[in-house]
């Protein structure tokens, strides 16, 4: 048992500890820092303000009588962010004459575009495959007019050790990679179509399906698969120095650009055509060398 002296010391020490604990508690409560809920912006789109040709500055936003922003935004839907920003910036610099205040370009997977989007005219301009648009809205011409077809591209079986051979023996002794997306022309439909035409039946253990393009590419680069279908553009982007090719199709359709019929202005249609061809050909010279700009395009002021 404690003596009186020890007990009073114990009480004193407890008091001191309590005071120090109080200091620590106050410190902890005061020094807690928390971020307020973060609102991430839309990473699937890019927006620019239209530039006035006269001043070289962004055009003032029109405010209506009720104080609302009468933003005449031109909304583009495409399938990839590659070139998206350049297309939007270019259009922002040249669209003043069409009453466009701003350009927004969004990129989403092919399945993002719905029949409802087409009917309500959600986008001013979009890129997709003609057969998919026809399948969704057979009367799509009432809403959108085709501006131009993006160039076809050749598609190959590609391997890095030796050239693929068009027979069952080759394909049954090598691992073949596909994208696990039956809508994909490049990495699912076209290669399966080729195999069907050549009467080659793949062994299930040699077919590999990947959920996204990056995983499929990674599998190819790490030799998890021996052969997959690729365009020249993909071969370049993946930095494959020595690619052995076997042609699948020399002219795969890539899609078409559609402009909403509310833009009943041949000048805008012409501008969009030339602008996209310029931007895309800068990005992919070989693919766009056959595509020509519209000759006389009256979109200048």
């Amino acid at each position: 048992m404690f003596s009186d002296s020890n007990r009073s010391w114990l009480v004193y020490c407890l008091f001191v500890i309590a005071i120090l604990a109080l200091l620590v508690l106050v410190t902890v409560l005061l020094s807690r820092v928390a971020v307020s809920p973060v609102q991430l912006s839309d990473y699937n789109s890019y927006r620019c303000e239209a530039i006035s040709q006269a001043t070289g500055k962004a055009i003032d936003q029109k405010i209506d009588s009720s104080g609302r922003n009468q933003d005449n935004e031109f909304h583009i839907l495409t399938l990839t962010p590659i070139s998206a920003r350049r297309i939007a910036d270019d259009l922002c610099a040249r669209s003043e004459r069409f009453g466009i205040n701003a350009v927004r370009i969004s990129w989403h997977a092919r399945g993002h575009l719905t029949a409802r989007d087409i009917v309500v005219g959600k986008y001013d301009l979009f890129w997709n495959r003609l057969h998919l648009v026809e399948g969704m809205v057979p009367t799509h011409q009432d809403y959108y007019a085709k501006v131009f077809d993006t160039p076809t591209y050749p598609l190959y079986w590609v391997a890095v050790d030796k050239k693929p051979v068009a027979n069952e023996h080759y394909f049954n002794s090598h691992r073949v990679g596909f994208l696990d997306d039956p809508h994909s022309q490049t990495m699912f439909l076209q290669p399966h179509d080729w195999l069907q035409k050549h009467g080659i039946k793949l062994l299930p253990e040699n077919s590999r399906f990947y959920s996204d393009i990056a995983s499929l590419e990674e599998a190819f680069l790490s030799r998890e698969i021996d052969v997959m279908s690729m365009s020249d553009t993909m071969i370049d982007l993946l930095g494959i120095k020595k690619a052995y090719r076997l042609l699948i199709n020399d002219a795969v359709e890539s899609g078409s650009w559609f402009l909403h019929t509310r833009w009943n202005d041949p000048g805008l249609s012409c501008l969009v055509n030339n602008l996209i061809v310029e931007q895309e050909s800068a990005f992919d010279v070989s693919l766009y060398k056959k595509v020509r700009k519209s000759p006389a395009c009256d979109y200048s002021l």
């Binding site: 990473y43 699937n44 399938l79 990839t80 962010p81 590659i82 393009i213 990056a214 993909m234 982007l237």
Partner: peptide
């Protein structure tokens, strides 16, 4: 989602 169909393009990454 943002990098859909982008084949690790450096300009897309920068954006």
């Amino acid at each position: 989602q943002a990098g859909i169909n982008s084949f690790s393009d450096p300009q897309v990454e920068a954006m």
